[in-house]
Simulated scan of single mutants.
Amino acid sequence: MNKTVGFLVLVFSFIACKEDKLPDANVIVNKSIEVSGGERFQHSNIAFDFRDRHYEAIRDNGYFLLTRTTINESDTIVDALDSQGDLTRFINGKRIVLHDTMALKYKSSVNAVHYFSVLPYRLNDAAVNKMYLGKTTVNDSEYHKIRVTFDKEGGGEDFDDVFVYWININTYKADYIAYSYAETDEIGYRFREAYNERFIDGIRFVDYNNYKPRTNVDGVEIMDRLFQQGQLELLSKIELKNILVN
């Protein structure tokens, strides 16, 4: 009898463990990428304007070329970042030799704008690590909450940044994003609220309300709670204009 009871306890414990198993963050992110454009990202030419600069991205099955064009009085400045990680600057069509520190600065800024423009695409890069944090509610909608970090190898200059994505459990769209970043000797925090969703040639684009905390923050994971408590201040709007997709 005791053996039977013990066996049943093991069976029910096994079933309970299966039921309590957390969802796979990779599966959720894959679904989010799929509803946002999926394979269309892999072979695409995307162009848009952001804050008086023009951006273009050519992607072809792993290869990419990301450019930023700035018109400065009579000069046309083009910064081009390729999939090998090399940043090249051209002024009026002439290649300019950059010091390493400036090349890293331009590389980071070009990559950041293009990275945010097509989120959640690239969350399956080799250097990306994803962790499921659980379900939560933001503005009466339920979300999967996923933490994203990056390996030092292949994670870029800002590999130590930490992101959190709130992916709607019904639509699988990433409606909120928060991240921490190095700011001199401190850690800075931002929270972005997606709006103005539109699909262009099957690829989802959104704009963002960009918030910063009013008070000190102890970890990027609590930014959704601060948002709902009114503890975030609107810093800027991230708006992509004149989007073209081929």
Rank of each mutant, 00 (worst) to 15 (best):
N196C: 07
D151A: 13
D24H: 15
V29A: 01
Y189R: 05
S36F: 05
W166M: 14
Y179D: 04
K152L: 06
K173H: 09
I238G: 00
V35Y: 10
N242I: 05
Q228Y: 03
L244M: 08
N26F: 06
F12A: 07
I58H: 05
H114Q: 08
G156R: 00
L240K: 06
V11T: 10
Y143D: 13
E193M: 05
V138S: 04
D158S: 12
P23W: 14
D20G: 02
Q229F: 10
G154W: 07
N196K: 03
Y176R: 07
V5Q: 14
Y176S: 12
E183K: 15
K152Y: 01
Y179E: 09
T76C: 12
A103V: 00
N168M: 08
I200P: 01
I96C: 11
V220R: 12
G37V: 03
N216L: 05
L123S: 07
E221Q: 15
K152D: 00
A194R: 11
T184R: 12
H43G: 04
L226E: 12
R59T: 02
I58T: 13
K212Y: 04
A47N: 03
I28L: 14
T171E: 02
V9T: 08
L232D: 00
G38P: 14
S108L: 03
H43T: 11
I77F: 02
H99I: 00
A126R: 09
N139C: 02
P120T: 05
N129R: 15
P120V: 01
D60M: 06
L66Y: 08
D218Q: 15
K31S: 08
K94G: 03
E73T: 10
E142H: 03
D158F: 04
E19N: 13
V110W: 00
N92F: 11
I169G: 10
L119K: 06
Y172P: 15
E197V: 00
S236E: 08
D207W: 06
V5F: 14
L232S: 01
S108A: 05
F227W: 12
L244F: 09
A57W: 05
I169F: 08
Q229C: 09
T136H: 06
L119N: 11
F199Y: 15
I177P: 12
F41P: 04
W166D: 14
N72S: 02
D224T: 12
G37P: 13
V97R: 14
G188V: 01
I33H: 13
F163K: 03
D140R: 03
G188N: 00
G38M: 10
G134R: 13
I146C: 13
E239I: 11
I167H: 12
A103R: 10
D125W: 00
E233Y: 06
I187Y: 10
Y132K: 15
T136L: 13
T184L: 11
E183M: 14
I243R: 01
R225A: 11
R225W: 01
Y121S: 04
D100K: 09
I167C: 09
Y121V: 01
G230A: 08
K135L: 04
I243A: 04
N139S: 02
M1W: 10
P120R: 14
Y63P: 02
R192H: 03
N242C: 00
Y143C: 04
N111Q: 05
K145M: 12
N210V: 15
R190T: 07
P120K: 13
Y121D: 13
Y115W: 14
G188T: 01
I96E: 15
E183D: 15
V35E: 08
W166Q: 09
I200Q: 11
